[in-house]
Design a binder for these strands. Structure first.
Lengths: 204, 204
DNA sequence: CAAATTTACTAAACACTGTTTACAAACCAA
DNA sequence: TTGGTTTGTAAACAGTGTTTAGTAAATTTG
């Protein structure tokens, strides 16, 4: 009875098609213009069809977010390869900043907008960001073991490093950095310097 | 001819009434449920009337944001009074974190959502955040002069401190901190520890 | 004071949004 | 082939920001 398998396969293909349409909309127009109707039009189906495959928009965005985190994990794996833990930490930070600035729309979905987190309630936990954060924690644990950083607890350390990176990117993406009254290049430079200075600060 | 003056006064009163209605909606329901229609209903006017006093929603939100920044500045003035610059820096940080966690909806409008920044384009600069940021820069300049912190440039320093604080609050408000798999109290504690540890880090 | 004009306001519409419902067509099993 | 399930959609509902046309009150003018 191969029909059930084929149907299941077709179902997954459709889910994938919807995700890719949504991802494309996000990349091209940003999250504000990514409506169910736009996604439906992009994949040449009616809006109602999307609701046969996803409970609501939040659930769809959650899956798109998962896709984005897979991309980030892949980039980390490619860019943060140093054997020395602290060097790897530096690679992680700069890669993160670069990813955020080059993929502002995706960064929005991953770390700023509330929507995809609505599916994560009560007991259910957020697994999308797990791998990337785990990689950071692991690297910081090695840094601590080898006494390369002024931290004691790898989790607290990871949160602090992450918050610093996210803070800089988020303030930039959401234009609050305009308070500095700088040109685009100056801002980019200042953000880079801030991370660099911070890494110097935590180094033993 | 006092009529013109009275009309101008009435106009300002109406603008104020709209802002207060919007602010109330923000405080009670958050920005997602703050629609022009809701604000209009709250102040007992038709939605169209709001457009006689504000060009669009972004312009209104910008004014509400200004009000929020005035509130923050007032709180800073009340809470960060220490004569010693570094102590004052600590007060600023803890006050900022406290404000963010206690007024998540306002924090959203001030630092996270894009809308109010749309009115700030090209030449026009963002004055809402000027005072609060200036206060931080001023404090850090004094810290640097008295060699209390491991920073050279007060602007870069201010950006870094701000980014750290904002990063922690933003990740919390937008639920990304769920990756830590902690209880609400643990999160609150970890955020506080992170700031504390960071302040230790930058102290000479 | 009465007429003309300007001002202040709103009902209704437009073009969107996420989502649901009722229905049609395709597919599969008997 | 009949009957039932699956798959997809048009249309509607309730909401959004915003604009337009029109009304009623306030003000100025003759």
């Amino acid at each position: 009875m191969g029909i059930a398998e084929r149907k299941e396969r077709e179902r997954l293909e459709m889910r994938e098609r919807i995700i890719q349409g949504a991802l494309q909309m996000f990349l091209e127009e940003g999250y504000e213009k990514t409506s169910i109707r736009n996604i439906a039009e992009k994949i040449e189906y009616s809006p109602a069809t999307i609701y046969l495959y996803y409970k609501d928009k939040d659930e769809l965005l959650y899956e798109v977010q998962k896709q984005c985190f897979d991309m980030l994990a892949e980039i980390f794996q490619k860019e943060a390869t140093a054997h020395d833990p602290f060097t790897r930490l530096e690679q992680i930070c700069y890669t993160y900043i670069k990813f955020g600035r080059e993929n502002a729309q995706l960064y929005d979905l991953m770390f700023i907008i509330k929507a995809p987190m609505n599916v994560v309630v009560e007991q259910k936990l957020w697994t999308n960001g797990h791998d990337a954060f785990g990689f950071l924690v692991h690297t910081l644990r090695q840094c601590i073991e080898q006494k390369q950083v002024r931290f004691k607890d790898p989790i607290t350390a990871a949160l602090q490093v992450w918050a610093m990176g996210h803070g800089l990117i988020a303030l930039d993406i959401r234009c609050r950095i305009k308070v500095l009254e700088m040109t685009e290049e100056q801002v980019q430079c200042t953000i880079h310097d801030s991370i660099k200075e911070y890494l110097e600060l935590i180094k033993y």
